[in-house]
Design a protein around this nucleic acid. Structure first.
Lengths: 113, 113
DNA sequence: CAAGATACCTTGTATAGCAAGGTATCTTTC
DNA sequence: GAAAGATACCTTGCTATACAAGGTATCTTG
C-alpha cells in the first residue's frame, strides 16, 4: 500500500547494505526484509540498473547449499553515488518535514478527539 | 532528477498545507514550491485523486485578479487520512534511516577523501 | 525420485510525477 | 479596443519504479 514511498529509496538502501559487505540478490531481499518490505520482483531489475550505472560489479560464487550466487560488490563510483543519494535523501526528508511542521496537527497532543 | 523520491509524499504535503487553510491548486503549487519542486502537471491530477477519495471538497470563489478559483477544503476523512499518512511516513523514514545507519559511511567524518 | 529450499530471472500491470501544450479570464498599456 | 501578460484551469503522453505472478535450475534430504 505504501509502495509509492519506496520509489527511489531502494537503490540507496541496497547500496548501503553493499557498503557493509558484498552480497547477492536473494540475500539482499532477506536482509532488507528485516526492516522493510521488498520483493524479488523488485530486486532483480534494480540490481541490473545498479550494474548498468557501474555502481556495482559482480562475481559468481558457488554455493554448497544451492545454485551459484551472483555476488554484487560496491564500486568506487557506487560509493560516491551512495554518498550523493544520502545527501539528497536527507535534504528531501527535511523538505517534507518542513511542510509537515507547519501543519497545526503536527504536535499530536490531543488534536484528535 | 530526484523525482522518484516524491512519489507518495506529495498528497500528504498537499493535505498538510490544506490543514492550515483552504487553497486552490495554483496557489498550492506556489506555496509548496517554496520548499520543494512541484509542477502544475502534477498538482491537477493529484487534486482530482484527493477529491475522488473524498479527502477534500471543493468550492468556487471568484477572483478579482483572474478567473475563478477552485478552492479545496480538507474533509474530516482527509484529516484522518493525513494523520495516517504522517504515521506511515515517519515509520518509513525510520526504516530507511535504520538501513542507512548500519552503513559505516553513515558517520560522515573523514570518510570521503 | 519427489519435495522443498535456494537462487536466478522475466513479463505485465499499476502508479505517480512531469514536460509540454492548450483554454479562459482579467488587468494593464498603448 | 487590440495586444500582452499574469492568473487560473486542465489534458495528453512519457518515464520510472515497485510488485505480483510465473518460470527455470540447482542442491539437499527423505
Amino acid at each position: 500500500m505504501k509502495t509509492q514511498l519506496k520509489k527511489g529509496t531502494l537503490d540507496m538502501c541496497v547500496l548501503a547494505v553493499l557498503a557493509q559487505a558484498d552480497s547477492y540478490a536473494y540475500e539482499l531481499v532477506s536482509k532488507l526484509s528485516q526492516g522493510m518490505e521488498i520483493s524479488e520482483g523488485t530486486i532483480y531489475p534494480l540490481m541490473r540498473r545498479l550494474q548498468n550505472e557501474s555502481w556495482v560489479s559482480t562475481y559468481l560464487v558457488e554455493s554448497s547449499s544451492g545454485p551459484s550466487r551472483k555476488y554484487y560488490k560496491l564500486t568506487e563510483a557506487g560509493r560516491l553515488e551512495l554518498a550523493t543519494m544520502r545527501q539528497e535523501w536527507q535534504e528531501f526528508v527535511a523538505e517534507v518535514e518542513n511542510v509537515l511542521r507547519d501543519d497545526p496537527a503536527a504536535s499530536t497532543e490531543g488534536t484528535l478527539q
